[in-house]
Computed example of a mutant assay.
Amino acid sequence: MRLLYAAALAAMLSASADAAPIRLEGGHYVTQLQVNGGDAFDFVIDTAASASAFSPGFVERLGLQPVPGMTAHVHGAAGIETVPLYRLDRLSGPDLELTSVIAAVMPGVASDRPTAGVLGVNTFQQSRIVFDFEAMTFETGASGAGAQGFQALAATRLRAGLVAVDVQVNGVPVKAVVDTGARRTIGNPALMAALGVSADDSRLAPAPDVGGATSHRIPSQVMEGATVALGGRDFGDLRLHFSDLPVFRALGAGDQPMLILGTDVWSQLSALAIDYPRNEVQVRFR
């Protein structure tokens, strides 16, 4: 999960009638975009990144130079860093056309990572976006009611343009951030407390540290067999991680339970749509 506040970003988006192919790689949904009309690179479509960003390896490969006098505060899941901004003339794909793209670099991403960067929600704020997990396509379009078979869920707008929906975890109500850039589902300490789980609970096991766009890492624990209820459907036998991530406070959770709902859950749907102007998440079950 990556929460990115860029100091500046200029991008013009146009949508075509063609859906873009996607694939699930490393727990992220990836699409290919042409850079300045030339080679195609993999970009993660990240609904929990407020702004688009580039990986260090992509910046090095293209020999991009920082925009003079421009920096950004990158709020990753685990911490904050100040980084330079870079400019690209054009990013294009079957369903996207971005021009004059100014984006931060992600200091926590290894230089040899295969993806070139992330597409953040600033790209889609005026659109309805659709992930079709059966056809493995992604498309953008005009705001409007979901197609037949979609169930509409009211969404809460969080800081930096992110959205959350109401779910239940083992029967406990919680706000869940819609995060297609997270490979695992993570709850905050307030959710642990609401579930009656203590830090030394025998149901918990050590788990890999949680990172993100910055170089910070935060310890985590995992509990097996959790159930998430979304739109009247239960998604059971879930590996639920817990971590005291700064991003929860940045999103205004305070002492309230909050969940980052990752692709381990979303990929179990037939399709997921987010209509930003309508403040609506639309789901289609298998």
Results as ranks from 00 to 15, higher is better:
D201K: 03
S215C: 06
V247L: 08
G252H: 12
I274W: 13
V210N: 03
D234S: 15
L259Q: 00
Q221D: 03
A250K: 09
D237K: 14
P208H: 13
S198P: 03
S198F: 07
H241Q: 09
S202F: 15
G236H: 10
A253T: 12
D234V: 11
I274D: 06
D237W: 11
R217T: 03
V247N: 02
P219Q: 04
F248L: 03
L245C: 01
A273S: 15
V228T: 06
D275M: 13
P206M: 08
R203F: 00
L238W: 05
L238D: 01
A193K: 14
D255S: 14
I274C: 11
V222M: 05
T214G: 05
Q221H: 06
V210F: 08
H216Q: 14
A271C: 10
R233W: 11
G236M: 12
M192R: 02
A194W: 01
V265A: 02
P246M: 05
G236A: 13
L261W: 07
R239C: 01
E224I: 09
P246C: 05
V228Y: 04
V247Q: 04
A194M: 04
A207H: 06
G262M: 07
S215K: 14
L230Y: 07
L269K: 12
S267H: 13
D244P: 01
V210M: 10
I274G: 08
A271H: 10
G252W: 13
S267L: 10
G211C: 07
G262V: 14
L269S: 09
A213F: 12
D234R: 14
L238K: 08
D234C: 07
A273W: 11
D255L: 13
